[in-house]
Computed example of a mutant assay.
Amino acid sequence: MSPIHLALVGVGKIARDQHLPSIEKSPDFKLVAAASHHGTVNGIDNFTSIEEMLAAVPAIDAVSLCMPPQYRYRAAHAALSAGKHVFLEKPPGATLSEVEDLHALAAARGLSLFASWHSRYAPAVEAAKGFLASTTIRSMRVIWKEEVRQWHPNQEWIWQAGGLGVFDPGINALSIVTHILPRPIFITKATLQFPENRDAPIAADITFTDAEGLDLSAEFDWRQTGKQSWDIIAETDSGRMVLSGGGARLSIDGVLKHAEPEQEYPMLYKRFAEIIRAGRSDVDIAPLRHVADAFMLGRRKFVDAFHD
């Protein structure tokens, strides 16, 4: 089967760390062009805008968008309008409405749109989902705490309106939780901590429930030093489940049940190829909806200014 001709838009940290290595190893894709205001990719044609790239390289079949979410809609709309399949880095957009509009446009043009959630492809996530489906869940705690200076050095866009702040990593936890739980959840209460000099939160405490009254809470914090925490802990009738390392390891009552090497982005590109060849889209906006609900319901608390 011939490889899908792919273009990459936004050659920044996530593109270099994850997308480019995964595309290079993928038998499904051939990278033929890139567009970025600041970065370039060796060995292919490079452009400064997606419009320029689409006009100059008609052989492109699909486009992977890695720019910040505030700027993704225009690029995705241009790519879909030009007849290209589109891969959206997480979060898929700055608002729910724009993602829904892109989904409708893709459907109208018979194209595939992929709202990617890389943490759902962490090695132990499916095992956790299977375990929870086999038992009764009594409560769940999500602890997602990391050091913003380590993972997002000097990235101003994450602190701007639409950049999501601590929900940029927190939405990874929400993407896992919404995938592994057997029923939909909804937010009942939230407190968002905003640095006095920023437009996006640095921490959040959220309470969720479901139709059967599940006790679920989440703690997101971008001020963690030392060991980073990406854990989902569930008390169940079959024991205490700990999904740790951002979904990398699953333990039940302290016994390690599942751990494999991380392959999140290679799996994302495998999935993107699958939906393109099947003529379908994969656009689940549940994690982004929960973020929007947190901003809607959340009580705002202002904290000390944050400086890189």
Rank of each mutant, 00 (worst) to 15 (best):
F220I: 00
L214I: 08
A278N: 13
E264R: 11
G247N: 03
Q228R: 03
S251P: 03
Q263V: 14
R277Q: 07
E260Q: 07
H179D: 11
G213R: 03
P261L: 08
F194W: 08
Q263K: 15
A211Y: 03
Q193P: 02
P195G: 05
E196H: 12
I285Y: 14
D284E: 05
F194S: 02
A259Q: 10
P169S: 09
A204W: 07
V242G: 03
Y269W: 10
L216V: 06
T209F: 05
N197K: 03
M241T: 07
L250I: 00
S251G: 01
T209K: 10
S175F: 07
A278M: 14
Q193T: 05
M267H: 08
I275E: 01
S244W: 06
D215Y: 05
R289A: 15
D210R: 04
R280V: 03
L250V: 06
E274V: 01
P184H: 05
V166H: 13
D282W: 11
G246Y: 02
L243I: 08
A211D: 02
L214H: 09
A273S: 13
I185P: 01
I185C: 13
T191P: 04
H258R: 07
D282V: 06
T188E: 13
K189S: 12
P261R: 04
F186D: 10
D215F: 02
S229F: 11
L250T: 08
R240I: 11
R289L: 10
G254H: 05
V177E: 12
R249F: 12
T236G: 14
T236P: 07
I252L: 12
N172V: 02
R249D: 11
I232F: 04
K257W: 08
Y269N: 02
D282G: 11
R277S: 06
T188L: 14
D282L: 15
I233G: 03
P261T: 02
P195D: 04
A248E: 08
S244D: 09
A190V: 01
R183P: 00
V255L: 11
P184K: 14
G254Q: 03
I187M: 09
F208V: 00
A278Y: 06
R249M: 09
D231M: 10
I176C: 03
I275C: 12
I171K: 01
L268A: 15
S229C: 06
E274P: 01
L174W: 09
M241Q: 06
A204T: 02
F186A: 13
D205Y: 14
L256H: 11
I202M: 12
T207K: 14
D237N: 09
A211L: 01
